[in-house]
Design a protein around this nucleic acid. Structure first.
Lengths: 156, 156
DNA sequence: CGTATCGAGGACATCCAATGTCCACGATAC
DNA sequence: GTATCGTGGACATTGGATGTCCTCGATACG
């Protein structure tokens, strides 16, 4: 089980954008340079965040990305599922229906017990992430990091 | 994020073995036929369960696998981490230290906030799985499945 | 002791998603 | 009009998951 590293990129970028929610849009180039990330690949994840309604994009010169909602209304789960998708990491293959111990389909209308246990764990995981907002993450950063100006060090 | 299907195989096999904890060992062939799984590949996962102390293996004719502990003392987490490993799905790449916004290493002795949030979610997930034992899963199976004899339909 | 049946473990092939790059296109500020 | 931006598709690369095969040691049975 492995999470895409795009999740880390997305979370850090969204938190960074939360440091100046109403400022000018920040370009993907600036965001990529901020963390030394490959720009075009980061762009893929930023696109996913736009499609999910977490970020808002602006075209043209002076364009870029900003938060689509106040950081208090964006949860870590929003960012994660925008990038990773919301599918459960456990996919039940219904092996109970196969082989010499096969259970007939008419007895398999409900998910099997194993599947239910895994689903409950996934929901606990989601609940944990849903309980943390981007605003809270920002508040928990060290003071000097929290108050950094995103655009200050962007070279020409 | 995706779990290995070996987790599903392992859970079903362990639950099956829990239906007759003190019976004769069940061979990997019988287990594979029970769910129509590829035998040699299933063997890899069974080996992992042995290495983690969940199963106990016996060599020679009449050999096979049985539970290493009573099913009340085996949790879903034990089985899952035997097969998937116990590493967190989120691996912090410390991107906060890189790029134009780089934080100096001496300020990074503690894990970053993003990493902490992800770690808490992972722990919530583990706690959920740790709260369910193999014995409980077995109890929640339909009666006719729960009482099936593992070896009954094994052909020669 | 000899043989057949079992698990352990390594070498190897295959497949697919994650990662990363590049280009054509439309939008927009100046 | 042009340069800068995001969008989206095509493409190459890579590593892990999946799956097979072979050798080895252990053991039950005669």
């Amino acid at each position: 089980m492995k999470l895409s590293q795009g999740v880390e990129w997305g979370l850090h970028c969204v938190v960074l954008l939360a440091q100046d929610p109403d400022g000018a849009p920040v370009s993907r180039r600036t965001l990529a340079q901020q963390f030394a990330l490959p720009e075009t690949y980061l762009a893929k994840h930023l696109q996913a965040l736009v499609r999910s309604g977490v970020l808002q994009a602006t075209s043209g010169p002076k364009g870029g990305f900003r938060l689509a909602r106040p950081p208090e209304e964006i949860t870590a789960l929003d960012v994660l599922e925008a990038i990773e998708g919301s599918a459960s990491p456990f996919v039940c293959q219904e092996i109970r229906q196969r082989g010499t111990g096969g259970v007939p389909p008419e007895e398999c209308r409900l998910p099997c017990t194993v599947s239910s246990v895994m689903a409950a764990a996934h929901e606990a995981w989601r609940a944990s992430l849903r309980g943390v907002t981007v605003a809270e993450i920002r508040e928990r950063l060290p003071k000097n990091v929290r108050e950094r100006d995103v655009r200050a060090t962007a070279p020409g």
